[in-house]
Write a protein that binds this DNA or RNA. Structure first.
Lengths: 239, 239
DNA sequence: GCAAAAGTGTTTTAGCTACACCCATGT
DNA sequence: ACATGGGTGTAGCTAAAACACTTTTGC
């Protein structure tokens, strides 16, 4: 019963990324086409192996930069879970994956990664309806990450991570509506987010309007918890 | 820039457990005395290495059973985070740890693990004030897990995991008071938890009373989300 | 002026807080 | 009877929902 050194399995570790963004009011995730077996040619979450000198968070940041071609500073990035079933990779090699939820504003160059692989934004809802559509157990990993994003939107300030550095209240409302698949009352939403301490920081500037009163521009505030929480209304697409 | 197989670091994986319970109204965590270098003789979180045929969740369940001597069925168990800094183990070996939050009722045999190591319940608050008191980065791991437990108490039904299979409303209230370090209004708490859909399931039975009206006994309900949430009042010990 | 989008006010409702009060049991 | 803890009622306050209304821009 005493453990010996032989009991210590050696494994490869990967950081796989669920990079979410909102395009045209719909929640999208970044997928890459696999260039090697197994699952050659199938769509998968981007990710990569832990290397010698880095932490796993560092692996995630590096992959994020390689896949999107942009600074990782602009992204919210957090761990979601560890996937370690022995049969999750069809080769018998033992590969354990830690998944990361990354939240990005709508990117100017959304699909061109710095490496050669094809990358594409896909609507999340289609993928959640088809769990076998992705390589490995990435359907499950995607679902877990999206669930976490939907839940955390209520109690944390991660919604601002979907927005560019400066944004309007309406743009922020569209984030909640897209992620939850609901529609929210515009006036009440405005009051609630502007009243929440530390959620939004006014810039004093206004957005040039295309017909209509110009909207005030905000930056993300310093708070990480959203108090009082923005409770998700019943109904909607997710959950 | 193309990754080669040599970039794939091989690591050992451990599941380390933050086992929380409430004893005499105070939040406690289970610690074990280390029997080997490094940190020989120091207090640490229980944990163990991933073995060949199991998942990491399986490792956590196995360790939980070995440390507490009880069935893992009665515990809430969830992943918290992955700790992968290259220097977190003083030997240069690369050991990556996934931490688990386990929530247990006050155990009849709290300290006797099935293996030879000394185990002890320690109040959480003392340990959080002294981050160097534990081996490795276990002070940090403990803090992250306790923060997660304190936050999730608001929005999920994990509080019932601190209670025995059948429990009274007052026992449940003492859980919230101990974890948050606050005191809650007894009548309002009663209404709130009994009104929350799926939180408590009445058994019809009553607890034999030691002076006073016998309290109704409940079991944990089927819901995992607590709606409406039990918002943590300002003040208290944690956070 | 008119359309469009932003932002504010107002009424109603629901939930929460504080605390008084009643209930059921042991001694 | 009375002490002890369990449970309910209620008045006042605060937050949220629903929706009417005003403001500021482009055309």
């Amino acid at each position: 019963m005493t453990p010996t050194r032989r009991d210590r399995l050696l494994v490869h570790l990967t950081a796989d990324l669920v990079i979410l963004t909102i395009r045209a009011g719909v929640l999208h995730v970044l997928l890459v086409e696999r260039g090697t077996v197994p699952f050659l040619g199938r769509w998968a979450l981007p990710g990569g192996f832990l290397r010698g000198a880095e932490t796993l968070d560092g692996t995630a940041v590096r992959e994020l930069r390689e896949e999107t071609g942009l600074d990782a500073e602009r992204f919210h990035l957090e761990q979601v879970g560890v996937y370690s079933a022995p049969d999750r990779d069809p080769r018998d090699q033992r590969i354990v994956t830690c998944s990361y939820l990354a939240i990005a504003p709508d990117l100017p160059v959304p699909t061109a990664g710095s490496d050669a692989r094809a990358a594409v934004w896909r609507p999340v809802d289609e993928l959640l309806d088809d769990p076998e559509g992705l390589a490995f157990d990435h359907g499950r990993i995607l679902r877990d990450a999206v669930d976490q994003a939907r839940a955390k939107l209520q109690f944390t300030t991660i919604a601002t991570s979907f927005c560019p550095p400066e944004f309007t209240v309406s743009e922020l409302r569209e984030v909640f509506e897209a992620v939850w698949g609901v529609s929210l009352d515009r006036p009440n939403f405005h009051r609630k987010v502007t009243d929440a301490e530390g959620f939004l920081a006014p810039t004093g500037r206004r957005r040039a309007s295309a017909g209509g009163r110009p909207a005030a521009l905000f930056r993300a505030g310093s708070a990480t918890a959203l108090m009082p929480p923005m409770l998700r209304p019943p109904g909607g697409s997710g959950r």
